[in-house]
């Protein structure tokens, strides 16, 4: 049987995490189909058809699918489940919202946030904020899985030649409606796929001080992230949060500035290749995971770093 990958998109472009999800599907092995459910989403469907490794794109284009409301999309996916051995979605807020609903409608357990495929029934996933890794085998005929994008190397978004097929939507469940979104606009790379991330914590003291980190980020082509404390204090918006309950990142370089290194924060960044910590407290736990630690007042170190980077 085939594998179905749920494509995350905004009706125009495909979200990068989908490419990592396709990679996880390839690790399972088999024919891979992709579902694009949206409204006026033909551009997204074509983008999905160009992804390497997908043989068929199934499109459900309807007004009630426009904003990814789980009540409308989950029945559609559950209705397709009989034809598939595995259904995969990225472990983004989009995937986490929809997939458990599909799992319940299909009377199937969900395996959340996998970081490795052992075989077609067996997967590895972090538990306890990544302090333990569980290997679990599913006894269900259907496997419903969300995929941690940082654990799988993205497939190419070009070179694919999938066929495109239309199916009907499941209709409007009449349970929920979308009003608006307030999306953070930024010219910087997206946090979860950036090669370099510069994050600030409570030590930044103020939202305006994040301007210092942004300057550095722009010199390095980096994304800007934050700890929960910095978000809670209102320094930066919620979508900057890195951690167990925020975003998981694994860039080549992660710089933690004025962040203590609580386990919940480490859960979101400790798989980064190189970690730098700037903190004035030489006992801060962040130094236990940092490849390069600088004990300094960030209000001296960050401007100096800015100068050094030229």
């Amino acid at each position: 049987m085939s594998i179905l990958v749920i494509v995350e998109h905004d009706n125009g472009t495909v979200n990068a995490a989908t490419l990592n999800t396709v990679a996880a599907a390839q690790a399972i092995g088999g024919d891979i189909h992709a579902l694009v459910s949206g409204h006026n989403c033909s551009t997204a469907a074509e983008a999905a058809a160009a992804i390497a490794g997908i043989s068929k794109v199934i499109v459900s284009d309807a007004a009630e699918n426009a904003n990814g409301l789980a009540e409308n999309i989950a029945p559609l996916i559950a209705g397709m489940a009989d034809s598939y051995s595995h259904i995969l979605a990225p472990a983004t807020t989009y995937g986490k919202n929809i997939l458990p609903r599909v799992a319940a409608l299909s009377d199937t357990a969900q395996i959340s946030d996998i970081i490795a495929v052992i075989d077609k029934d067996t997967f590895q996933r972090p538990i306890y904020a990544g302090n333990a890794l569980a290997t679990v085998r599913s006894g269900d005929a259907l496997k419903i899985i969300t995929v941690r994008s940082t654990a799988f190397e993205a497939v190419a978004d070009t070179g694919g030649t999938a066929t495109i097929e239309q199916i009907d939507a499941a209709g409007d469940a009449g349970l929920s409606s979308f009003e608006k979104s307030e999306l953070s606009k930024s010219e910087r790379p997206e946090l979860t796929s950036a090669g370099i991330v510069v994050s600030g914590g409570r030590g930044m003291q103020d939202g305006s001080n994040f301007g210092m980190l942004e300057k550095i980020a722009d010199k390095l082509g980096a994304a800007v992230g934050a700890s929960r404390a910095a978000v809670d204090a209102g320094f930066v918006p919620n979508d900057y949060q890195v951690g167990q309950t925020g975003k998981v990142v694994a860039p080549d370089l992660y710089m933690a500035v004025g962040i203590s290194g609580a386990i919940q924060h480490l859960a979101g960044m400790k798989d980064s290749k190189v970690i730098v910590a700037i903190n004035k407290d030489d006992e801060a736990p962040i130094f236990q995971v940092a490849d390069y630690g600088l004990v300094a007042d960030l209000f001296d170190a960050v401007p100096e770093l800015d100068t050094e980077l030229g």
Binding site: S177, F178, S181, E182, N238
Partner: peptide, 11 residues
């Protein structure tokens, strides 16, 4: 709270 920012819905 969604990945891109905030979303307003009515249920």
């Amino acid at each position: 709270e969604v990945d891109g920012g905030l979303e307003h819905i009515e249920v």
